[in-house]
């Protein structure tokens, strides 16, 4: 079943069609990569899905719900988590606290209960802490849980950011260039993490420039160029596609 359906999506910035009539689906439980040269509209596509930008026309359906007109924080609450190209940690908070904030959408107690420190908020708080430590452990950064997040190595911050996104218990995770700024070892590690996330049953849609990473981990690939779909298919087919080779290698 398709978790995310994008239909005839279009985004116009003045005279520029950043996303031009793009349609595709993301099936549940798969890793799908969006690739294409710079300016192909990949990040714009992500901004449209996460609600950071409104589309000019077209539809995005998630689990059957139309996302049109929804605010970014409500889209996040529906179960679509997202990371940005540059890591966005909460400065002044520990790695663990960063992940705990991610649990926000899954916690029940409201403002008053939390202020008044009701007994059930204590147990919920404990539960949030326990679950967050587990996530840091899963991503291999439990040992830095109490360090300030912004003081960590870049690769570790990336892992904390993944943990924070997972804390939201998303069913769809949007990763915008997860390997940007990482060295080859860290990139390989991020690749393993993404596969582990998929194996937890979370669908992943990623934008990435590192071709070897994309070919290694993706189940399906969508190729964009100048806002239009050029090809879509499994990695082996994409590698053979003459249109794609033309875009990447020139004629």
């Amino acid at each position: 079943m398709a978790l995310l359906e994008v239909e005839n999506l279009q985004k116009r910035f003045g005279g520029l069609l950043a996303v031009d009539d793009v349609s595709f689906t993301v099936k549940q439980g798969l890793i799908k990569a969006v690739i294409g040269p710079n300016g192909a509209g990949k990040t714009t596509l992500f901004n449209l899905i996460s609600g950071a930008l409104p589309p000019t026309s077209g539809r995005i359906r998630y689990n059957g719900d139309d996302l049109g007109g929804k605010k970014p924080h409500s889209i996040a609450a529906l179960g679509i988590a997202r990371t940005y190209q540059n890591v966005k940690m909460f400065a002044g908070m520990t790695a663990l606290e960063n992940v705990m904030v991610g649990r926000h959408v899954r916690s029940r107690s409201g403002f008053l209960a939390s202020m008044l420190k009701m007994p059930w908020t204590w147990s919920e708080e404990k539960e949030i802490r326990k679950r967050s430590v587990e996530l840091l452990d899963l991503l291999g950064v439990a040992d830095v849980a109490d360090k300030e997040a912004t003081s960590l190595a870049f690769g570790q911050q990336r892992a904390v950011e993944f943990a924070r996104a997972l804390a939201m218990e998303p069913s769809l995770l949007l990763l915008d260039e997860p390997a940007a700024g990482l060295n080859i070892y860290e990139t390989a590690e991020v690749g393993r993490l993404i596969v582990r996330i998929r194996d937890l049953g979370i669908t992943v849609l990623l934008v990435e420039h590192d071709m070897s990473l994309v070919m290694d981990i993706s189940d399906e690939i969508l190729v964009l160029s100048f806002g239009q779909t050029i090809a879509e298919g499994i990695p082996a087919a994409i590698q053979q596609d003459p249109e794609v080779i033309k875009i990447y290698l020139g004629e």
Binding site: H73, S74, Y84, K88, A91, V101, V105, M168
Partner: peptide
């Protein structure tokens, strides 16, 4: 600390 990231966390 980071409004964009806070929105991403719902």
């Amino acid at each position: 600390a980071n409004r964009t990231a806070a929105i991403l966390c719902g």
